[in-house]
Structure formats: structure tokens, C-alpha cells
Amino acid sequence: MNAILSKLGLFWRAWRTQHPLIKDYYAELAKLLQYKLADIPMLAIDLEMTGLDPAFDQILSIGIVPIKNGQLQMAKAQHKLVSIDGSVGQSAVIHGILDNQLQDALSPEQAMQWFMQQSKGHLLVAHHSPLDLAFLEQGISLHLAEPVKLLAVDTLAVEKRRLLRQQEVFKEGELRLGACRERYNLPVYNAHNALIDAIACGELLIAQMAAMGDGDKLTVTDLF
């Protein structure tokens, strides 16, 4: 596991960072990565954005749901809207968040602080995590004035490795969240928002972990 951490430069970053929230995040992460996989607290996340480019587009909402002992904790599932500069414009068609709904939203700075607090002591999980992480890292370095490197399990990458191991040739779209869920007999969710997709991603992860077999022997490296 230390290899993963070194690769991210986590030790180095933890020592260097000034921001207390980010310092805590690194410290807790280094600790929990030593646990057995089944014992690692995780946090499934999903974002809605105004577009796909982290340099220009902004985060609209964040959904999170913690996973403890292999079970999603609905009591601690949360959904936060984030206020943005300008209008949601055309992207409202996809995520359904309208400008007037953003009135009670958190400011980006509040949102990033809240997110770092929630992430503390959890291993992040997302479907196609590089995109979500890019937005979060961008947002944090912008609003908390401190560069950050986040670590997340990518359920898409887990699935891709599994399919490749089975020597399956996969077609376009087979790694999409809905398609992956179908392979595990998970229900179809028609509604979409950051929270529902975070739940959908979390469920996929526990299904993937169940498929890997003996829970006691798995370590976090099995997910990377």
C-alpha cells in the first residue's frame, strides 16, 4: 500500500501542507489504508457539474454516502448544492438543477470545507473517479488556497480489470454505471442526482467486493 501512497506523494504532501483540514485528511488516510479492506470506512461520492472541463466548468452538487462494514449508511447520506458564477445554462437539461434551486446552496468555499471534513477518515469511491477528483482537487486548491491530491477507488476501473481478467471483449457503454450494475443484479434507478448516483456507485462497490470472494483476505490493493 505504501507504494500507492508514495506514488501520490502523500507522505511528502502531508508533511508540506499548511491547511488543517487537508493535513488531517492525509494523516487519517495513511492510517486507514493499513486496515483489512472490509474494515476501511469508505465514502461513495458523485458530483454534478456544469460541464466536463475542470478548468472552466463548476461543481453544482455533491452527493455522499458512507460505507461502513460493507454496508451503505443511509442515515449519513448527504446531498449539497453548490452556488456557481453565472447560470447553469444548458446543462440543466442533464442534471435538472435550476438556477432558483441554487439559492440555498453552499458557497464553493463552504462546499469544499464541508467535503474535506466529510472525507476525513474515509477512502473515497467514485465511478470514473478521475473526473470527479479533478473537479474536487481544482475546487479545493482554488478555494482553500492549498493544492491537494485525493485518493479514490474507481469502480469503473475495478470493473474493467475484472472483465479483462475474464477475457471478455467489451463494447461501448458496457462500463457505464447502469451497465455495470446490471451485471450484479442491482436495481435500475430511473431518477438521477448526485446523491442517487453516489448510492448507485456505493452499491456497485459492495457488489464488486462480494464478487471478489473472501472478505477477510482482501486488502485495499485489490481495488487498485
Binding site: 454496508q71 451503505l72 448510492i199 462480494a210
Partner: peptide
């Protein structure tokens, strides 16, 4: 709904 936990059994 809020009180549920969700598990998966293989």
C-alpha cells in the same frame, strides 16, 4: 429510508 443500511450478498 433514512434509517436503512444497504448490503449486498453474493
Amino acid at each position: 429510508c433514512r434509517a436503512l443500511t444497504i448490503g449486498y450478498y453474493s
